[in-house]
Design a protein around this nucleic acid. Structure first.
Length: 297
DNA sequence: TCTGGTCAAGGTGGT
DNA sequence: ACCACCTTGACCAGA
C-alpha cells in the first residue's frame, strides 16, 4: 500500500496547474507555463519522495488546454526530454501514478461532439503517461458519465465508445463508482463488457451502494485488476461534517481512517486520499498507518 | 493588494 | 422550458 494525495501540494511555493484564460492563449505563454508546471511537478515528486508519499496523481492541468484545438504548439516533442527526465525520478523511487480527467470528459454522452472531445482528452492523458515512459500500471480513472434519462442505453454507449478507443488508452483506463448515478454494481457490469478494472471509491460507495459491505466491495473490485494493471487503486475520503452528503472532508478523520485500515484487511491496494488539505492529511495518514504491514513509504 | 465574478468543456433535478 | 446547482481552484479585471 502506497499513499497519495491528488494533484496539488499546498506547501510548495510553486504550482503544477498554472494556467490562463483561453482568450489569453498565446504560444510563448503556453510554452513558458508548461515548462513552469513541469518544473513544479519535479519539486512535488521530490517532496513526495522525501516524505514517503509514493502514490502520485498528476494534475490534468499540467498542460494547459492539453486537449483543446486551440493548443497548437507541439508540446509533445518540445518537452519529450523533460518528461522522460521526470520518469527517471519516478522509477528510481517506485512511484505509482494516476490521472483523473474532469467532469466534462464523458464517454457516454449522446452528443457526438462531446464524445469526440472526450476521446481527445483521454488521448491527451495517455500522451502524458506515455511520454513519461510509464507502463500499464499507470492509470487514468474515469466515471461512467451521465444517465440521460435512459441508463441502459447510456451504459451501452459507454461500452461501445470504450471499445473504440485506441489500445494505448484502453490499457490505462479504470472506471470508478460515483456517489449519485452509477454504483459499484454498475461499474462491474461495465467491466464485464470492457475488461476495464474497477477503481473502488470508499466514500462514494458509502453514499451510493446496493448493500455490499466494505469487504465484499474490495473483493469484487480487486478481481477486476490483472497483473499488468498493478495493485488495485482505491480512493478514500470521509464526510465533511455539517456539509452536504457526499462532500469531502477538509481534514483527515483519524478515527474513521483507523477503522477503514482495520476493516479493509487483508486486502492490499494503493490508496488515494481525496481530502481537501492534501499533503497535510496524507502525512497524518502515513503516521496513522505506520504500523500497518501493508504500507510502503 | 484585495475581491468578486468568471472560466473550455456537461449534466441533473426541481419548478 | 427554465434555472439553480454541482465541485473546484485559480484567473483576472476593476477597485
Amino acid at each position: 500500500m502506497k499513499i497519495g494525495y491528488p494533484c496539488l501540494n499546498r506547501s510548495l511555493d510553486c504550482r503544477v496547474n498554472q494556467g490562463f484564460r483561453l482568450a489569453n492563449l498565446e504560444p510563448k505563454r503556453l510554452t513558458e507555463t508548461i515548462a513552469a508546471n513541469l518544473k513544479c511537478l519535479e519539486s512535488m515528486i521530490r517532496f513526495n519522495t522525501a516524505h514517503g508519499l509514493l502514490f502520485l496523481r498528476i494534475s490534468s492541468d499540467l498542460i494547459p488546454f492539453g486537449s483543446h484545438a486551440a493548443n497548437r504548439i507541439d508540446w509533445r516533442s518540445q518537452f519529450r526530454d523533460h518528461l522522460s527526465g521526470l520518469d527517471d525520478l519516478l522509477k528510481q523511487n517506485q512511484f505509482r501514478i494516476s490521472m483523473h480527467p474532469g467532469q466534462y470528459t464523458l464517454l457516454n454522452s449522446p452528443s457526438e461532439e462531446v464524445v469526440t472531445n472526450s476521446v481527445r482528452d483521454l488521448n491527451y492523458h495517455a500522451d502524458v503517461l506515455d511520454l513519461l515512459g510509464l507502463d500499464a500500471s499507470a492509470k487514468i480513472q474515469l466515471h461512467i458519465g451521465g444517465r440521460y434519462g435512459d441508463p441502459a442505453a447510456a451504459l451501452k454507449r459507454f461500452v461501445v465508445n470504450f471499445n473504440n478507443l485506441e489500445e494505448r488508452v484502453r490499457r490505462r483506463l479504470v472506471i470508478e463508482n460515483d456517489e449519485r448515478l452509477y454504483a459499484l454494481a454498475d461499474v462491474i457490469a461495465v467491466y464485464e463488457r470492457t475488461g476495464a478494472p474497477v477503481l473502488f471509491d470508499v466514500f462514494h460507495h458509502s453514499v451510493l451502494n446496493r448493500g455490499e459491505s466494505l469487504h465484499q466491495a474490495l473483493e469484487i473490485s480487486r478481481k477486476t485488476w490483472r497483473a499488468a494493471d498493478g495493485l488495485p487503486m482505491v480512493d478514500y475520503s470521509s464526510q465533511l461534517i455539517d456539509g452536504k452528503i457526499g462532500a469531502h472532508a477538509q481534514h483527515l478523520d483519524e478515527g474513521h481512517f483507523v477503522e477503514f485500515l482495520n476493516a479493509s484487511r487483508p486486502y492490499n491496494f494503493d490508496l488515494m486520499l481525496e481530502i481537501k488539505d492534501k499533503e497535510t492529511s496524507a502525512l497524518r495518514a502515513l503516521k496513522v498507518a505506520a504500523a500497518d504491514t501493508r504500507l510502503v513509504c
